[in-house]
Simulated assay, not measured.
Amino acid sequence: MRLHRTLGTTVGALLLALAVPSSAHATTGDFLYKTSTGQDAGVSDQESGVCINLPGTTEEAPGNSPQNFTISTATVFLETDCNGDTYSELKPGAKLGEDVKVRSVIFA
């Protein structure tokens, strides 16, 4: 009987642990890019589902060469606020070249 209660308690604790939401920083790692002036830049450990307007980019001169060294998929957009029809998806570890222009990113 004692083993039965212990097993039930263990299973209950496991189910509770699985029900608790995970950390909001689902994008552990670095997302790198080049600014409009060609300088290296990046963001680290960002929240999943939150759009980031990339510093050092402008409408006239977007950034380029995105590199996703996070554990999440990154979607980069030519427009700010993760808007527009021009975007690219980068799986973890993916790198794109200078021809890919970026101004914002969101992680899934």
Rank of each mutant, 00 (worst) to 15 (best):
residue 1 M to W: 11
residue 5 R to A: 08
residue 6 T to R: 14
residue 7 L to Y: 05
residue 7 L to I: 11
residue 7 L to C: 11
residue 8 G to V: 05
residue 9 T to A: 15
residue 11 V to R: 10
residue 12 G to C: 10
residue 12 G to M: 12
residue 12 G to I: 04
residue 14 L to T: 04
residue 14 L to F: 12
residue 14 L to S: 08
residue 15 L to M: 06
residue 16 L to N: 03
residue 17 A to S: 10
residue 18 L to I: 12
residue 19 A to K: 01
residue 19 A to S: 11
residue 19 A to L: 10
residue 20 V to S: 06
residue 22 S to P: 01
residue 22 S to A: 15
residue 24 A to K: 10
residue 24 A to D: 09
residue 25 H to F: 13
residue 27 T to A: 15
residue 27 T to W: 14
residue 27 T to E: 13
residue 27 T to I: 09
residue 27 T to Q: 14
residue 27 T to M: 12
residue 28 T to C: 10
residue 28 T to V: 13
residue 29 G to C: 04
residue 30 D to Q: 08
residue 32 L to M: 15
residue 34 K to H: 04
residue 36 S to L: 05
residue 38 G to Y: 05
residue 40 D to M: 07
residue 41 A to K: 07
residue 43 V to K: 09
residue 43 V to M: 11
residue 45 D to T: 03
residue 45 D to F: 10
residue 46 Q to W: 14
residue 50 V to C: 00
residue 50 V to R: 08
residue 50 V to Q: 06
residue 51 C to L: 02
residue 52 I to G: 01
residue 52 I to L: 13
residue 53 N to W: 02
residue 54 L to K: 07
residue 54 L to F: 02
residue 54 L to V: 01
residue 55 P to S: 08
residue 55 P to K: 05
residue 56 G to R: 06
residue 62 P to A: 04
residue 63 G to D: 01
residue 63 G to R: 13
residue 64 N to K: 13
residue 64 N to F: 09
residue 65 S to F: 04
residue 67 Q to H: 13
residue 68 N to F: 01
residue 68 N to K: 02
residue 70 T to Q: 05
residue 70 T to A: 10
residue 72 S to H: 08
residue 76 V to H: 06
residue 76 V to S: 03
residue 76 V to A: 03
residue 78 L to Q: 02
residue 78 L to A: 06
residue 80 T to H: 08
residue 81 D to K: 09
residue 84 G to A: 04
residue 84 G to R: 03
residue 87 Y to L: 14
residue 89 E to G: 07
residue 92 P to M: 11
residue 93 G to V: 11
residue 96 L to E: 05
residue 100 V to G: 09
residue 100 V to K: 14
residue 100 V to I: 15
residue 103 R to P: 02
residue 104 S to V: 02
residue 105 V to R: 09
residue 106 I to W: 08
residue 106 I to T: 06
residue 106 I to E: 03
residue 107 F to P: 00
residue 107 F to S: 00
